[in-house]
């Protein structure tokens, strides 16, 4: 069975002539912005199976009764992958993420019930996972939509200012 090393960005290694460079899909669109934080390099590990058996020091977001997303600092990915139960898939590269402030901006981005977060639904018309911490929101979504979502988020913030 392959351990799917090719899925995990943190397994890249600098050696001799090569120094792999991790690039966030939001890097270009968020360049020069301070109102939105880029969370793309956060470790994101999907667990399938018995999510109740997850016992790690990290943020665990349950998506379904047998599916969860574990969020952790990038440096902890390797350790967590080894300790998590069930089918463990490194989604660090798959999901882009951003953090922004303000309920009104979120209301213009999604029809999700902001009182019922975390929840999965559409943000800027693309599938996303939304987490809330007071008036701050974290949004995770497929990285291929990142540039587009970044543009929409900045546009929405501009419309509110």
């Amino acid at each position: 069975m392959s351990e799917l090393h090719f899925l995990s960005p943190d397994r890249a290694r600098s050696e001799d002539l090569f120094a792999p460079r991790f690039a966030s899909p939001l890097a270009r669109v968020l360049a020069g912005t301070t109102s939105v934080l880029d969370l793309s390099q956060l470790g994101k590990i999907e667990v399938r199976g018995d999510v109740d058996a997850i016992d790690v020091e990290a943020e665990v977001v349950r998506i379904t009764p047998r599916r969860a997303l574990v969020l952790c600092p990038y440096e902890q990915c390797a350790e967590l992958r080894a300790r998590l139960p069930g089918l463990v898939i490194d989604m660090t590269g798959a999901l882009a993420g951003l953090e922004l402030e303000g309920e009104q901006a979120m209301r213009r981005l999604t029809d999700l019930d902001l009182e019922g977060l975390p929840a999965a639904g559409k943000v800027a018309e693309v599938p996303a996972l939304v987490l809330r911490d007071g008036s701050r929101f974290r949004i995770f979504f497929p990285q291929e939509f990142a540039h587009y979502v970044g543009e929409v988020v900045l546009d929405v913030l501009e419309g509110i200012e």
């Binding site: 090393h5 090719f6 899925l7 995990s8 960005p9 397994r11 890249a12 290694r13 600098s14 050696e15 090569f18 120094a19 792999p20 460079r21 991790f22 690039a23 966030s24 899909p25 793309s40 390099q41 660090t92 590269g93 798959a94 990285q143």
Partner: peptide, 28 residues
Amino acid sequence: GVPCLILRIGFVGELGYELHFASPYGEY
């Protein structure tokens, strides 16, 4: 330096290798 899955296939008809690897290293 990037972990890859190499698939030796030939959609375009010449000797070829498809490299699959974590998205953040696309540009690199």
